[in-house]
């Protein structure tokens, strides 16, 4: 004979309860359900109908069991939710970018085909996203389930952010002009006299063939950067237009540098020989140094672009 619905209902409910509770809850539920069924029989209902109705009213045994054992019916409750969400957002920004960049750098130095570099880097980035999301959430679920009393830092008013200055002030303009002038001076000095001094005579660091057009382009980019800072200063705030210009300038500078570097036209071969190769640096190492230089250039430009948009967003807030 198959078990009755009531027996099945009670067994399902008590299996997830702590052992010492099980028999007691079973006996009490048996009596309560039998009482309720009886009351319906007295009103002339069929036994099977009555049993169904009573169990339906009691609802999902999982919910009833959770209610008996005070288990939460959510993954992460209000006590931990915000901490979980803030930490997750922070890590999801940092970790996948580091994983992507790190693997890309490693693969480039290994000298595998560019398709493999892109594939492996994307896989590493996606893997990092999945891992961060899973493990962070798991830790918080465990905290929630174990009823941990860990009190996470209480909020207080000192945590409110001061609206940060976005670099639209006088100091930024002055800094930009000073660095612009120094940059132009260094470049011209490098071309005229040679910036690096090796064995008593000057050797230019930048390629001699860059003069005049390559150098003039670089000087124009520097002038435009200073001009952009002046424009932002004049308006006292970052705008979408300034963020777009900032992005364009960063891209132009990056293509200037990478194109020349790719054609071995950026750095003076004489300087490289004297400074590195003559001191016993191997060609392989030179290649790695080149890749690191590219990564540095790309990283700085990317940060410059992101920074411009962040400042634009901060300034466009009411």
């Amino acid at each position: 004979m198959s078990t009755t619905l009531t027996e099945r209902y009670i067994s399902t409910t008590i299996t997830s309860l702590p052992a010492p509770l099980q028999d007691d809850v079973r006996a009490e539920l048996e009596a309560s359900i039998a009482d309720a069924v009886e009351a319906r029989l007295d009103q002339g209902e069929q036994r099977s109908e009555a049993e169904r109705a009573v169990l339906t009213e009691l609802g999902d045994p999982g919910i009833l069991a959770a209610s008996y054992s005070d288990r939460p019916l959510h993954l992460i409750g209000p006590r931990f939710y915000l901490t979980w969400w803030r930490l997750l957002k922070l890590l999801l920004i940092i970790v996948p970018i580091c994983a992507f960049g790190g693997v890309a750098l490693g693969k480039l130095i290994e000298d595998v085909p560019i398709g493999d570099v892109i594939g492996a880097s994307i896989a590493a980035g996606l893997g990092a996203i999945v891992h961060v999301a899973f493990w962070v959430t798991l830790v918080f679920v465990i905290l929630e389930r174990t009823g941990s009393e860990t009190t996470l830092a209480e909020w207080d008013v000192d945590q409110l952010h001061e609206p940060r200055p976005t670099g639209a002030g006088r100091a930024d303009l002055i800094a930009s002009i000073v660095f612009g002038v120094i940059g132009v001076g260094v470049i011209l000095w490098d071309q005229a006299r040679g910036f690096a001094r090796i064995d008593g005579h000057g050797v230019p660091i930048l390629h001699p063939d860059l003069w005049p057009w390559g150098i003039l382009a670089l000087l124009a980019i520097i002038a435009l950067e200073v001009g952009l800072t002046a424009m932002i200063y004049a308006r006292r705030r970052w705008t979408t237009a300034s963020a777009v210009l900032n992005t364009a300038l960063a891209v132009v500078f990056l293509s200037w540098a990478l194109t020349l570097l790719g054609h071995d036209l950026l750095l003076n071969p004489e300087f490289l020989d004297l400074a590195f190769v003559d001191n016993g640096v191997q060609p392989d190492t030179m290649r790695v140094l080149g890749i690191l230089l590219v990564f540095g250039l790309v990283g700085i430009s990317a940060w410059d672009i992101v920074d411009g948009w962040l400042k634009n967003r901060r300034d466009s807030r009411p």
């Binding site: 809850v25 309560s32 009213e57 009691l58 919910i63 009833l64 209610s67 008996y68």
Partner: peptide, 11 residues
Amino acid sequence: DANTLYPLLRR
């Protein structure tokens, strides 16, 4: 509801 009362009594 029965499913509220019975666990409440135990609590």
